[in-house]
Computed example of a mutant assay.
Amino acid sequence: MFSLIQLQADTIANAATGAVVENIAPNTEISVLQFIFKGGFFLIPIAILLFYTFYLVIERYLYIQKASKIDSLMMRDVRDNLNSGKLDRALSIVERNNTSSGNVIKEGILLIGRPISEIESNMDRAADIEIGEMEKHLGQLGLIAGIAPTLGFIGTISGVIKIFYSISVTENISIGNISGGLYEKMISSGSGLIVGIIAYSAYHLLNGKIDNFALKIQKQILEFVNIIQKS
């Protein structure tokens, strides 16, 4: 009798163990790359925009960093040579400087002898040209900041439409079917927002550097005008 009870207990224990094993969820871990690829077709243009954004940011940053460099020693040397009447020497100094500020000061040196108002006006126009060169292609970053999130949103909407179409055909309205497809499509929206944030931030940071240069070059123009007025 005792052996029969023991056998029944072992059978129940084994059955319970089997049920627990069957209820253990399978390993569903996926890599980050696999997770991203579940976003669908619209991730392709978003990825292209991301790489183009990085290219624009690096190219514009390097150009602006070099062009907006302000050399205080250049103005000192220019002042000393202008006070000594050595225009050619002052001109060679700004040409060697090879920066936007050097180009603006060069414009002023070439017009020495003309009315002060004309010199200042031409230097302002030269500064505007240099600032325009720095701002080249920055508008594209602003465009990407708007397009990328929109593409992501369209990708998500497209995925949701497909999910509900599948439900209408198969009549399978299980939570797993809906949530599984929906989270995959929302990857598209998340990716678009990330690219948009990167482009938006870079656009304003680079414009901030240009605004800082614009302020400094106006100070240099004023300093140059004061130099030629005193000489």
Rank of each mutant, 00 (worst) to 15 (best):
G40N: 09
I144V: 14
Q140M: 15
S117A: 06
L143C: 09
V104Y: 00
R89D: 13
V225G: 03
I12A: 03
I105H: 00
N226I: 06
T156D: 09
P115Y: 04
L222P: 06
K230N: 12
L56Y: 05
M134R: 01
Q8H: 06
I227D: 02
S188E: 08
G180M: 00
L110D: 10
I228W: 14
I131W: 01
L43R: 04
E118H: 04
A16F: 01
A19P: 02
K66V: 06
I131A: 07
F54M: 06
V57M: 02
E22V: 15
L222T: 11
N14Q: 13
L206I: 09
I46N: 05
K38P: 06
P149L: 10
Q218W: 08
K162E: 11
V20F: 14
L91S: 15
S188F: 01
L151S: 07
M123S: 00
S179T: 12
G146F: 02
G181N: 13
L56V: 08
E184N: 13
F41Y: 07
L141F: 09
G102R: 05
K38A: 15
A126S: 01
E22Q: 12
L62K: 11
F164A: 09
I154C: 06
M75A: 06
I46E: 05
F41H: 09
V104I: 03
L205F: 14
D128G: 04
L138C: 05
G102Q: 02
I187T: 15
R76N: 12
S68N: 08
Y61G: 08
R79Q: 11
S158E: 09
N98S: 09
L91I: 05
V32Y: 15
L206Q: 04
T17K: 15
L56N: 05
T150Y: 06
Y200T: 11
I131Q: 04
L91M: 14
S201E: 11
S31G: 12
A214D: 11
L82R: 03
N207C: 00
N103A: 05
T11H: 11
L73N: 14
K185A: 15
V94H: 01
S168L: 02
N172P: 13
A67R: 11
L4Y: 14
I227L: 06
I163T: 06
E184A: 12
G176T: 07
A126D: 00
I5K: 11
L141N: 03
L110C: 07
N212C: 04
F35N: 15
V57W: 00
I187D: 09
E59T: 14
P26Q: 14
D128Q: 08
I12W: 03
V195K: 00
A90E: 02
Y52W: 14
L141W: 09
F42D: 03
E130C: 01
G155K: 03
A67G: 11
I5L: 12
S117Q: 11
R125D: 03
T156Y: 05
A9M: 08
T150N: 09
R76P: 08
S191W: 10
L206H: 01
L91H: 08
P45G: 02
I112K: 07
S3V: 07
N122I: 00
I163G: 03
P26N: 15
F41I: 14
S188W: 04
Q34A: 10
F153C: 10
N14D: 15
R96F: 07
